[in-house]
């Protein structure tokens, strides 16, 4: 009974975590940098959904199409504003880590100005009452948000594996030098990947506000750790790995929460440490690339 419920919840949360984390992974795959502002961008998407629903009375999921284009533009601008300059510094990876930490602080402060410190949450019955899945009554919000993550991930895969630009993106991920030698404009591909990564983060925000029961300005700094864990489990730079990582993370987290709630919050951190120390390339990682 409890086991079945935890299993279903774990899978739904896993799909959501995969969607929420995938932008971070794309950025890392292409640019080798960890966007510490990722979580705050997710929270911005959540606030858009919140405003649409509580102020305009619209369906909060409309936030997904509404945020995509501005978020993409913001990502591309952020890329051109920071990355070329960062590449001049001695230790690009560290410099980018610190820089995006600064960006995350600014975004968090802006969110506080706009929405205050209180929790912003939406009605848990927005999508109706609990849904019966295999005899378990699962909240409709979880079902809707978990299942919506699937088409989002499919869109990303179609882009990466079927479109010209997507293939160029994957070529850059595999080897920047070879891609450049093959005539790919690596800078433009990187800028676009940055934009898409940010857009995916913002789009997942509309689901985050339901899956987490609400957001506040400091939610972002916790989300980025979760996303990083998911991505590390699956292996950095591998989009399919993120789905595996998300599902594994969702299941482990839900099961500890069910059977040992007071220790549940330590799980993400331990999981990250164990995966990094035992198999630093992640579950689907190829040995070729060193961390």
């Amino acid at each position: 009974m409890l086991f079945g419920y935890a299993l279903i919840a774990g899978v739904l949360f896993g799909l959501f975590y995969a969607f929420m984390s995938t932008g971070l992974n794309l950025l890392f795959g292409v640019l080798r940098l960890v966007n510490l502002a990722h979580g705050d961008i997710v929270v911005f998407g959540a606030y858009v959904a919140y405003s649409l629903s509580s102020m305009a009375g619209l369906n909060p999921l409309l936030a997904i199409p509404i945020t995509i284009v501005p978020a993409l533009a913001f990502g591309v601008l952020l890329y051109y504003g920071t990355v070329p300059r960062l590449n001049r510094s001695q230790d690009t990876e560290m410099a980018s880590l610190i820089l995006f930490f600064g960006v995350s602080q600014v975004l968090e402060a802006v969110a506080t100005f706009a929405y205050g410190n209180n929790q912003a949450s939406l009605s848990p019955t927005t999508f109706g009452g609990p849904i019966n899945i295999l005899g378990e009554h699962v909240p409709a919000t979880w079902v809707v948000c978990g299942l919506l993550s699937i088409p989002a991930l499919v869109v990303l895969f179609v882009y990466l594996y079927r479109s010209r630009l997507g293939m160029a993106t994957r070529a850059v991920m595999a080897s920047r030098e070879e891609a450049a030698a093959a005539g790919i404009n690596t800078r433009r591909v990187a800028a676009l990947a940055f934009g898409i990564g940010v857009a995916f983060a913002a789009a997942s925000g509309a689901l985050t506000i339901f899956m987490l029961g609400g957001v506040n300005p400091s939610t972002g700094s916790e989300l980025v750790l979760t996303a990083f864990t998911v991505v590390v489990i699956g292996s950095l730079g591998n989009p399919i790995g993120t789905v595996v990582g998300g599902l594994l993370y969702g299941l482990v987290f839900t099961f500890t929460k069910t059977y040992s709630p007071s220790w549940a919050d330590i799980v993400p951190y331990l999981l990250m440490l164990v995966v990094l120390l035992v198999r630093p390339t992640g579950i689907l990682g190829r040995r070729v690339r060193s961390a």
Partner: peptide, 24 residues
């Protein structure tokens, strides 16, 4: 053993370790 990791991996793993100690 964290020193086997590099770059962002090390930075975030050390953060995870400090949070794990705090939660314990």
């Amino acid at each position: 053993p964290l020193l086997r990791l590099t770059g962002a991996y090390f930075a975030l793993a050390s953060l995870a370790a400090s949070q794990a100690v705090y939660l314990v």
